[in-house]
Amino acid sequence: MGPRVALFVTCIVDQLFPRVGLAMADVLERIGCEVDFPEAQTCCGQPAFNSGYRAEARDVARHFLSVFEQAEYIVVPSGSCTSMISHHYAELFRKEPEWLDRARAVGSRVVEFSTFLTEVVKVEDVGARLDAVVTYHDSCHALRELSVKSGPRRLLGRVRGLTLKEMDRAEECCGFGGTFSVKFAETSGGMVRTKVDSILRTGAEIVVSIDSSCLMQLQGALARANAPVRTMHLAEVLASR
């Protein structure tokens, strides 16, 4: 029997892309984990934190900590939300030692989904099959705050029928950036169109990432450009068979 994991599916996946959460649960169950979904979960608080509303972010963070305090592992289909909890909660609770301790304790058990597979349970072949040419988008917070780079690619490498074609700008930001995408819509739009060009140059049919927020930005721009490319979260790729 694998470890017991609590899913934190993130508010974006819960409300907009539930299939990503279901795929993640499928994969984790397939490799023998006991999967739990604490129903009181909502959001990690990042939107408020990134917009400069620390008190509001702290309120939501306290709620998150209370919900997940008992969990052994908290697995998250997002690098950005994982980093918010494992890195930025410390800044939020800098002046509240008691909450800081709780944030650190929970933060050390929060793991981004691909990292959970490659570094915790150390499974790279989950028995997936997807006949497609895909390209991989490095999401910024996973790449630069969590150093997630080769893990997702190794997982993709074990998917039968799948060919990975790297794009020339894999590490460049898609331009989402949370509220940045609407506060600075035109700049954000310019950024994602540069990224879309890079994706199209690969000839891939699918863009894969480990963050649904980047994929929302990319899919939204691909759709607007009527480009014949779709997006898939890594969990959805790994759940395919």
Partner: peptide, 21 residues
């Protein structure tokens, strides 16, 4: 408006993850 000025918008899922779960 900001979002739609640049890209298409995902429609909220008719059933959330928790409802599926």
């Amino acid at each position: 408006k900001g979002w739609l000025s640049q890209r298409d918008l995902p429609r909220p899922a008719s059933k959330s993850f928790r409802q599926h779960w």
